[in-house]
Design a protein around this nucleic acid. Structure first.
Lengths: 365, 365
DNA sequence: TAGAACTCTGAAAACGATTTCAGAAAAGGT
DNA sequence: ACCTTTTCTGAAATCGTTTTCAGAGTTCTA
């Protein structure tokens, strides 16, 4: 009793929720019939159906999903755990996910784990308790406990923003590594030989890791090694993009191309580069990843990889809906990324001019 | 039976969910005792409590919230309907909301209405069916049906990002109108007399409307009228900021200060202004609203109003949690905004500061 | 040591919707 | 006109949990 609110408070509380029985009485039928009108309208005689429908709308009855879920075992609810909503790429995906789920009569329970596996575990427990029918995760690296939990709950799961299944969990997304490989090959193709990378690498971020590996592999193939000091780790903020760039260029003034694993980092790096006197792209090329709205609008516009976030969200919704209703389900769905060539990357400057300009620029600031 | 999945599919489905009775049997107690251990541990003898706890963890039991909700009438779930998650200001608010709810053992059901009142109504119906215990809305303008629905469901509600209650619904947020009044006074103070405004005004956006009114009132007080053609309506995209600016400056070349109701619009406007040869802030001042991450990072950094989105989200969570447990609740919570003066606004260029010269409409590019 | 006053536990009754089962009404066939 | 189908409806069981109620132990008081 202690936990319940006192019966009379200032705010008027629920005037005896109308239940199926009330509707039945008003329509002069049995609760069973009302339920049938709600769930399988076809099997009830039109006149009765109308009478019930009228009763329903006159009482503005909405069914209580607790009872419904109890009996049917389905909550018609999907859970999603994202690292953060602060990154527009995730916000966009969640938005598309919700839209598609809504069309199919599902609702979305959302949680953000702040890149913390412990927190993720806790949120998952909470979601499972709520009786979700399926769950959307971001990326493939998760604690074993989490996977056990999902398996025990016996619910379908899909990992997003990655293209290959991990530990048996299906995936929908792009091949991050292939994307940066292509991007790097492109930069190699236009003459760059000295590279730097800025990567957002929280412990559990496999997308970023794959992106970095793509860069390294493409470079290795061209006989170029990326030393540890040529890779700066950062979080996903614009400010860190700035400071990472400064550190990178201080340690390695010879660099002509900076590959960032995120547009936000790239934009930060670009701002700092400008401030330090670099001309982008004439003396320095910078690339991003994600193709956020801003990427096309800044000056110079950012060369980047476009991630189909909305498609990922929609696809994840479709996948789970199908899985729940027992339809056949592929083990993974690889969506195409697109390399977007814009103005922030250009041919490497001829090495002599480059060196002198840059030295001067650094001093100038 | 038609709607149920066939019993045997490729994916191993739920191996008979463990229920409270199983735990009871394993621990050699009654289900009632298990329930008590779960809900009021204090009232059960320690030895039994331990036995039950062991049984729970050995079977890794999690209670089914359907049954729980059915009996208790509480789902421990909060709903939120936002216009879109694509705006970082909302994403940030939702994130904070979820964090705080999670701490209190609640989960968040989220829906986005795309600025469509019909859609909002439908999403609300869906949320209510799910048995949410409270709901968070954005802004104060909603269809009467929505308000009726909420009242009938007898659940607490809070409107966010606004500071004054509408139709009896409490609010938490900033005073949008006061904010732009202050901003406008500031611009008047540094000599501007010709203004333009770019506003995102979907039919149901009262924040934006309030912001616009703030501008108009401050100007009116200074004896300046804002003609309809000096106000360009747009959606919330960067691209529309660009085109809106172009239209504005074409129709009114005399303008020296452009007030945008959104940072995104302002950044778009600024990009276009640059492209058209304006020097910001020397020949043109531009202001935004929201203080998104990028605002401080662009060049010149944006003068804007900072909206405490995270605080709004947290506050909304606290408010609802209190309301649900019957605690006293204020009718509204006004949070302070802050005017952030940065480089995008400066004194009006000399040639245009005096009323006498305004008529001449100097056109210098 | 008997009775009173507490603690604690289990049996059983909700909570609201769905669905099975069987029976009533209507339709169809001869 | 009677029997067989078919179509539709209502009574009742069920889902998993919480909570009331009463009773069984236990401790304390006189």
């Amino acid at each position: 009793m202690a936990s319940k609110p006192p019966p009379a408070t200032t705010w008027s509380h629920s005037q005896a929720r109308v239940k199926i029985e009330d509707v039945a009485r008003q329509a002069g039928v049995s609760p069973a019939t009302v339920s049938r009108v709600l769930n399988h309208p076809a099997i009830v005689r039109p006149e009765l159906r109308d009478k019930v429908a009228r009763a329903i709308s006159s009482l503005s009855y909405t069914r209580d999903s607790a009872g419904r879920a109890l009996k049917s075992g389905r909550m018609r609810t999907i859970g999603a755990i994202v690292p953060t909503l602060g990154l527009s790429i995730f916000a966009e995906g969640v938005e598309a996910l919700q839209n598609r789920l809504s069309e199919a009569g599902y609702t979305l329970l959302i949680a953000n784990a702040q890149y913390d596996q412990q927190r993720e575990l806790q949120e998952m427990r909470s979601l499972i308790e709520r009786g979700i029918d399926g769950v959307v995760l971001v990326g493939g690296s998760h604690s074993p406990e989490l996977r056990t939990m999902i398996r025990q709950a016996g619910m379908p799961v899909i990992t997003t923003y990655v293209s290959r299944p991990t530990s048996g969990m299906p995936a929908i997304g792009i091949d991050n590594e292939a994307a940066t490989r292509e991007l790097t090959r492109y930069l190699l193709g236009i003459g760059h030989v000295s590279f730097g990378a800025i990567a957002n690498v929280p412990p559990s971020n496999d997308r970023s890791r794959a992106r970095l590996e793509g860069v390294q592999k493409a470079l290795a193939k061209a006989g170029i090694e990326l030393k540890p000091t040529q890779i700066i780790k950062a979080d996903h903020s614009l400010a860190q993009g700035r400071s990472a760039f400064r550190q990178l260029i201080t340690d390695h003034p010879e660099i002509t191309a900076v590959i960032c694993t995120t547009d936000t980092l790239a934009i930060g790096a670009m701002a700092e580069a400008r401030k330090l006197g670099f001309k982008v792209p004439q003396t320095l090329s910078i690339t991003g990843f994600d193709d956020i709205e801003l990427a096309a609008q800044i000056d110079p516009p950012l060369t980047t990889i476009s991630v189909p976030a909305a498609e990922i969200g929609r696809g994840a919704a479709d996948y789970l809906i199908n899985a729940i209703s027992g339809l056949s389900i592929p083990s993974s769905i690889e969506l195409p990324y697109r390399m977007i060539v814009r103005g922030s990357a250009a041919a490497a400057p001829p090495s002599q001019t480059r060196k002198s300009t840059r030295a001067k620029a650094v001093w100038n600031r």
